[in-house]
Computed example of a mutant assay.
Amino acid sequence: MLACQGQMEGRWEAVVLYTKANDSFVLRWHDFPDDGEITRARKDLGLIPPNSREGLG
C-alpha cells in the first residue's frame, strides 16, 4: 500500500494493520515501524502491483 505523509509529500510504502467502519485504514510506515500508527482514507491510498518492487528499496 502507498500512502502520503502530508499533502505536499510523496507516497511511501505502508503496511495495513486494519480497516475502520468509516472506510479508512490504520497503517504503519514500512520503513519506520516505530513511528506509530497512521490513519488514511481509502481515497488517499495507492496500491502496489504484485511482484512490482522496483524502486521501493
Results as ranks from 00 to 15, higher is better:
Glu54Asp: 13
Gly46His: 03
Val16Thr: 12
Arg42Lys: 12
Leu2Gly: 03
Trp12Pro: 00
Trp29Leu: 02
Leu47Ser: 13
Thr19Ser: 11
Arg28Gly: 01
His30Leu: 11
Trp12Cys: 00
Asn22Ile: 09
Pro49Tyr: 00
Lys20Glu: 15
Lys43Thr: 09
Gly55Asn: 12
Val26Glu: 09
Phe32Leu: 14
Glu9Arg: 08
Leu27Lys: 04
Gly46Leu: 02
Gly6Asn: 12
Asp31Tyr: 12
Ala3Pro: 00
Met1Lys: 07
Val26Asp: 06
Leu45Trp: 00
Pro33Leu: 08
Tyr18His: 15
Glu13Val: 06
Glu9Asp: 15
Ser52Ile: 01
Asp34Met: 14
Trp29Tyr: 07
Leu45Lys: 02
Ser52Glu: 11
Thr39Trp: 02
Trp12Thr: 01
Tyr18Ile: 00
Cys4Ala: 10
Ala14His: 03
Ser24Gln: 10
His30Ala: 06
Glu9Gly: 00
Met1Pro: 13
Gly55Met: 08
Lys43Pro: 01
Arg28Gln: 07
Gly10Asp: 09
Trp12Asp: 00
Leu45Phe: 01
Gly57Pro: 03
Tyr18Arg: 14
Leu17Glu: 15
Gln5Pro: 02
Arg28Cys: 04
Gln7Asn: 08
Ser52Leu: 05
Ser52Gly: 02
Arg40Leu: 06
Ala3Gln: 00
Asp34Gln: 15
Tyr18Ser: 15
Asn22Glu: 15
Glu9Pro: 01
Lys43Gln: 12
Gln5Ile: 03
Ala3Ser: 04
Gly46Phe: 00
Asp34Ser: 15
Asp44Leu: 02
Met8Ser: 13
Ser24Phe: 00
Gly6Arg: 11
Arg28Lys: 14
Pro33His: 05
Leu47Tyr: 07
Asp23Met: 08
Ile48Thr: 12
Pro49Ala: 11
Met8Phe: 07
Arg42Cys: 02
Asn22His: 12
Ala41Asp: 14
Lys43Val: 02
Ala3Asn: 01
Val15Gln: 11
Leu2Thr: 10
Leu2His: 03
Leu56Lys: 05
Ala14Gly: 06
Val16Ser: 14
Ala14Arg: 02
Val26Pro: 05
Pro50Tyr: 05
Asp23Phe: 06
Gly36Arg: 15
Glu13Met: 03
Cys4Tyr: 05
Asp44Tyr: 02
Gln7Thr: 07
Leu17Asp: 15
Leu47Met: 09
